Amino acid sequence: MNIAWGALGTVVIAALVIGVAVIALVSFALVGLSARSRPSIAGRRGLGPATGTAVAGLCLAATALIVGYGLYVIVS
């Protein structure tokens, strides 16, 4: 049995990077959605409700694209 260690290392590194990216995107989406639930306080810094929703939508869309591409690669 011959193991291609270089290819295995490449797959491991790619899986780690993509896994961290998906987790980070979902985390940013949750932060964006939490901006909608905080009451508006004068002088408060941070995301507004509309901006938070937009950030959450973009992050979840990017996550869906990554997962969809992974499924496409597995099926094809």
Rank of each mutant, 00 (worst) to 15 (best):
A15M: 08
G57S: 11
V12Q: 04
A29D: 00
G6F: 05
A29V: 00
P49M: 10
W5G: 07
V22W: 03
A4E: 06
A14M: 05
A42D: 07
A29Q: 00
I41R: 08
V55P: 00
A64S: 14
A61G: 14
A42K: 05
G46D: 08
A29G: 03
S76A: 14
S27R: 12
A4D: 09
M1T: 05
V26Q: 01
V75E: 15
N2R: 04
S40C: 03
G6T: 06
R38M: 08
A21Q: 07
S37T: 11
C59I: 06
A15N: 08
S34V: 08
A4I: 03
S27L: 15
V75D: 15
I74A: 15
G46V: 04
I74M: 13
L16Y: 07
G70K: 05
S76R: 14
I13G: 07
F28L: 15
I74D: 12
G57W: 02
S27T: 15
V12A: 09
L30I: 13
F28C: 02
N2K: 04
V55Q: 01
I66S: 03
V12R: 03
G32C: 10
V67K: 11
V17F: 11
S37W: 06
C59Q: 01
L33F: 10
V22G: 01
V17T: 12
Y72K: 12
S76T: 13
V12E: 06
A62C: 13
L60R: 00
R36P: 01
I3P: 01
T53K: 03
V20I: 12
I3D: 06
W5F: 06
V22K: 06
P49D: 09
I13E: 06
F28D: 00
I41P: 02
G48A: 12
G52W: 00
A61N: 11
A14W: 02
I74E: 14
V55R: 00
V67C: 13
R36W: 08
A7M: 07
V31G: 01
V73F: 08
Y69M: 11
L58S: 02
L47R: 11
A14S: 10
L8N: 07
S27C: 14
S40T: 06
Y72E: 11
I13K: 08
A24G: 07
G9N: 05
A35S: 14
L60G: 01
P39S: 04
L58R: 01
I18P: 00
A64R: 04
G6A: 07
G70L: 08
L58K: 00
G43T: 02
Y69R: 08
I41Y: 05
L71N: 15
V22M: 12
V17C: 13
A24F: 13
A54Y: 07
A7T: 07
I3E: 07
V12S: 09
S34H: 05
M1S: 10
Y69G: 10
L30V: 14
R45I: 09
V22R: 04
G52K: 00
L60P: 00
V12D: 06
I41L: 08
N2C: 01
L58N: 01
L30S: 15
A24M: 03
S40K: 05
A7P: 02
L33V: 04
A64W: 08
A64V: 11
A15I: 04
V31R: 14
V31S: 03
A15V: 04
A15S: 10
M1D: 09
L16I: 11
A61V: 12
I23F: 11
S76L: 11
V73H: 09
V12L: 07
A14R: 04
